[in-house]
Write a protein that binds this DNA or RNA. Structure first.
Lengths: 146, 146
DNA sequence: TATCATGTTGACTAAATTAGTAAACTAACG
DNA sequence: CGTTAGTTTACTAATTTAGTCAACATGATA
């Protein structure tokens, strides 16, 4: 089960926006790209996708940029993955329309298994918010200043 | 998070072998391929990989074929996915060696998040055995005979 | 022991997906 | 207006995945 670079970039972008959420200002794409080592032109697409999913908002023009659309505690890992991939788990049998003849093969049964796994993975991923992730980042970072 | 066709094929192959496990006989690759609609030449690779992971065993020669290496109740979904992909979750930051400078970016923090998710996904997937999956298959199949 | 049906291995190719780039466009501020 | 920054669409390159092939090894059996 592979997590795409795109999905991880998206998480890093949201994490970066989380750090600036208190200040209620927008950040430029370029700044996010530099600070999180994400190819800027690629990040353009990612942020637009996050925006269409309602996770971030933008301000256009000279003083423009991006900010989170809601509080970091209200944005979960699952939200971001779903915004990028459409669903938490992508597997052939989940997208296929299954017919009765498939009953004989393992396809239909496995479809149910994947749906079950997806639900339970959802419970895990929806329980991890960027508020928590960000706090954990501060914590592990502070260890270097003791 | 994408599950490859290869991983799903592997699950279907193990499911097919589960059905014949009681009889303690081997099944030919060709039969598994036909019954589970898997390209035979591709299945060859998959079964070898499952064998190297110790999940199936083979008998060579004229009366050869494949069988499960242990009871279906002792083979989990997690076992099969790990046999195919090496780990449950493949993500750039998990394979990378992280250095201190990465602390500043989200890479290091996310690495911990992915490891956490992987552990918890493992608990889910290791709890789903092919014995159960097979029984569920029988159950849903029998509905068509009422 | 010849042979035939099977598993084994590694190299290869084609298709699909992912990752990344470019450029023209639109909106807002000064 | 000019400059800065987001928007959109199209394109390309790189990588991964899916699948094929052919030569080989093994074991049952006639």
């Amino acid at each position: 089960m592979r997590v795409s670079a795109k999905a991880e970039y998206a998480c890093r972008a949201v994490l970066e926006l989380t750090r600036y959420h208190e200040k209620a200002e927008v950040i430029h794409i370029g700044d996010i790209a530099v600070r999180q080592s994400i190819p800027e032109k690629y990040l353009v697409q990612i942020l637009l996708q996050l925006q269409r999913a309602g996770l971030v908002k933008s301000k256009r023009g000279a003083t423009g940029g991006y900010a989170l659309a809601r509080a970091p505690g209200e944005i979960s890992l699952g939200d971001v993955i779903r915004a990028m991939d459409g669903a938490l788990i992508a597997v052939e049998s989940l997208s296929d329309d299954t017919n009765v003849s498939d009953q004989m093969s393992g396809q239909h049964v496995l479809k149910n298994v994947w749906m079950d796994v997806q639900d339970r993975l959802g419970e895990i991923m929806d329980g991890i918010t960027f508020d928590e992730i960000s706090r954990q980042a501060q914590k592990s970072l502070s260890m270097y200043y003791i």
